[in-house]
Nucleic acid binder design. Sequence first.
RNA 1: GCCCUCGUAGUUGAAUGGAUACAACGCCUCCCUCCGAAGGAGGUGGUGCAGGUUCGAUUCCUGCCGAGGGCACCA
Length: 573
Amino acid sequence: MWPKIKKEIIKLIEKSFPDLKISEADFVFPPNPEFGDLSLPCFNFAKAVGNSPPEIAKELSRKIEPAGIVGKIVAVGPYLNFFLDKRKMASLVLNQILKDKEKYGNSKMGKGKRAMIEFSNANTHKEYHVGHLRNLCYGDAVTRLLAASGHKVIPVSYINDFGIHVAKTLWFIYKHKDPHAQTIIKQGTIEDKGYFLGQMYSDATKKINEIGDNAKREVGEFMAKIESRHGLEHKHWQETRRWSIEQFEEIYKEMDVKFDKVFYESEVIDEGRKIVDELFRKNFLVKSQGAVIANLEKYNLGVLLFLRSDGTALYPVADIPLAIKKFKKYKLDESIYVVDVRQSLYFQQLFKILELLGYKQKMIHLDYEFVKLPSGMMSSRTGNVITYENLRTEAMERAIAETKKRHTDWSKEKIDEIAREIVVGAIKFEMVKVGKEQTITFDIDRALRFEGYTAAYLQYTHARICSIIRKAKVKISGKIDFTKLHEKWEHDLTINLAKFPETLEKAASDYNPAVLAGYLYELAKTFSDFYRDVQVIKADPETKKARIALIFAVKTVLAKGLSILGIAAPEEM
RNA sequence: GCCCUCGUAGUUGAAUGGAUACAACGCCUCCCUCCGAAGGAGGUGGUGCAGGUUCGAUUCCUGCCGAGGGCACCA
């Protein structure tokens, strides 16, 4: 829409000034609606024309005749500001949205590109906490953004079920036979098995540090027995692994996040060991201080450990075969890894190795800063942690209380359903509204507010619009006279709606859902202004119909934007 | 020691090198006989320091100060 408008304006200018070379990229959106709808800074022409920017702007504004979509041209300092014709814009924008409906804003930016995006790489036998949630929410939002911009996206998760942490936990329970662990197991009624394993892991780490080398040796032996895939140790592993995986699946279901495929370390590690042997024979990997490493010093990437001195495997042993499997089986153009910034050196090393092995596909590490708490860094060890379970329980209590207060007549099921949508919205919005370079200081009271810059505000705005449309009892069809829409707030809404496709494109190309979150908030705020000053239901029939179409368009874009953030847009709340 | 990120209002965050630095929360005043008050109106208050590049710097460069992270057997 904007490219078309910009072209029209360029033509208009060239009619009077054929020598000025203006491109679409020269235009900017004014910071404030008072300055118009579109603006052309004149700094760049100053040198070519030999005049000061303000004078150029002034001259342009005098000589160019507004026509077509352009209603008024005003020079303000060095800027040439264009006010678009309110009625024509309303008709142009709203017709487009009414026609495209929930497809409005989709682009072809990524057409024909197959991208695999890996996120939510949780470990079994550990707690799932708000740090993991940031990964899950960010990864899911990027997935949906890429899909909306025309990519073929394949979301996958990679579960580390075979690392040394597993052996530590199981050693603690079954070999060390910690009395506390034994009691819990014997009761046979563990409510939250994933959480239980997390606790056991945390206790195990403490115990191993207490005991020292002897424990470390036993853990190593335990790991070897699991890896042998026989015997009691392996059986314990299978059972407890299932507990964690079931917990993950439950979380994904509650959070409404879907994966096309889940990979497990235990499924690729054997292939990885073969590759390590082969690369070692080819001298690609070398022995150093007893360990097997890749020396990447000539690329300024240090060294990467593959095998410990005792022969046990480290991360890359599984990551290399997995990456290769992805390329071969899924024919990818892009492989994206959503993993926090602390592993950026590791991913540079991994990508370099894959490149040296001949893989030329685009590999992207989408890094983001981690989550900390107001009380400091999150740590299971010291108990300074908010688990998914804590957060969900606390959030549901608050959301149910708020919803009950407003809808005394609703059934328990309905209240639970809406409360769940509010809770999931609150968590996701909290996790993606901040830029990825920013550490999130997760304050549970702040996150579970339902006012201000929150998902609840957007959902509330959506519900309000639905309520008006229900009450208006007007069909949005047939001839709609959009020339009735020329009030300030109507025009502001129209212009905001028109910016949606560009916003989506920007968010997708920057992998930055925060851009979308900010846009939706702006749109909802503008609707509140409109709502305060403009009557919909009591307007005359023609105007009423046009206004209903306008707010229907706002509702459509709000719902679409929220859905890209993975958030539901309830009709009542 | 080397490398990376961040430093914006009391707090949490926005701002392709451009117009008067934008919000939320907090605090203080107000607004439901009016389409949903999970809302709205008003007030309060800010770019760590010092240079440089530029017509113009929160943004780019250098140095310093401060916070966090990474750098061989953690994942």
